[in-house]
Amino acid sequence: MSLRDEQATLRAMAHPVRLRILSLLTGAALTAADISRELGLTHANASYHLRTLLAGGLIVPDGEERIRGGIAKRYRYDAARDRERDRESGRAVNADVQRPLFATVANELIRRTAEADWSVGGTMTDAELWVDPEVFRDVRDRIARASRDLHDAARAPRTPGAVRTSTTIAMFKMVDP
């Protein structure tokens, strides 16, 4: 992926509504109408955000269906494809492109905490820690595996028996002050 493509991809992600759409599309292939109902958006707005995500290479088409004389396109987020692409590229992400994404995710976390069910508990770690490089790599890899497990287990919105969760993970090596 070229730097220009990478910038377009991260720019597409750096919007709170598109982050929510990506989350929904992790568990199921959905249409613009499905997304507009779930997120309370207009159909036109949901379609616009889907087109932006598609242009950024973040989602893939997943079929079509006839609905009242029209054709509704389904889209999904393919986490396995992105993991493979990341593994193949092996290139560091441009920090100036990544920072706006992290800021958007931080704001999204604020929105989600307003909808939290604290009665069942939760967990959070926020710290600047100094650890051995081997420990960092080991923990980072275990967290990445847990993240993959969650993505692979994602279900469609409101699937009976499934619980809605918020998972935000940001782990990176920092430069020395």
Rank of each mutant, 00 (worst) to 15 (best):
R68T: 09
R81N: 01
N107T: 11
R155P: 04
A146D: 07
R137P: 15
T167W: 00
R145H: 15
V120N: 00
V120W: 13
E65S: 07
V139Q: 12
P61W: 08
A46E: 11
A116P: 04
T167L: 05
T42H: 02
H49D: 10
G56F: 07
P160T: 15
N94H: 14
L109V: 14
I110K: 01
R140K: 05
R66C: 05
R83Q: 06
G57W: 01
R158P: 07
R155I: 07
A92P: 15
G121C: 09
S89G: 07
R81S: 07
A170R: 02
G57Y: 00
I59D: 07
E64G: 11
T125I: 14
R37V: 15
K73L: 15
A92E: 15
V97I: 13
R37I: 12
V163I: 13
A103Y: 05
I110F: 01
G63E: 02
R91I: 09
P61M: 06
A44H: 06
L39S: 11
D149C: 02
R164P: 08
N45F: 10
E134L: 09
L101V: 05
T165M: 00
A116W: 12
R85V: 09
A156C: 04
F136V: 01
A162G: 13
I59Q: 00
A153R: 09
R142N: 01
A154W: 02
R112C: 13
Y75M: 04
G90Y: 13
A72W: 14
E84M: 01
S47D: 11
L50F: 12
G122S: 05
A116F: 10
A80L: 11
E64D: 15
A156W: 11
D126Q: 08
E65I: 11
V163P: 01
S166P: 05
L109W: 07
E134M: 03
I59W: 00
G90F: 14
G161N: 09
G70W: 12
A116I: 08
I110C: 00
A127Y: 08
H49E: 11
P61I: 08
R66V: 12
L39I: 06
A154M: 02
A156N: 09
T167F: 04
A116Q: 10
A55T: 02
F102D: 01
I71N: 03
R164V: 15
H151R: 05
R158W: 05
N107G: 11
R137H: 15
S147F: 08
A79L: 11
R99A: 11
V60M: 01
R81C: 00
R81G: 04
D117C: 02
D78Y: 03
L41W: 08
T123V: 10
P157K: 12
S119D: 14
R111I: 09
W118S: 06
P160R: 04
T52D: 07
V131C: 10
A44L: 04
A162L: 08
G69A: 06
I143C: 08
T52R: 03
A144V: 15
V93T: 14
L39E: 14
H49P: 14
A46Y: 10
L109H: 08
D138I: 05
R87W: 14
L109D: 10
A153K: 03
R155Q: 12
A144W: 03
E134C: 03
G63M: 06
S89M: 10
R37K: 11
A79T: 14
A79W: 15
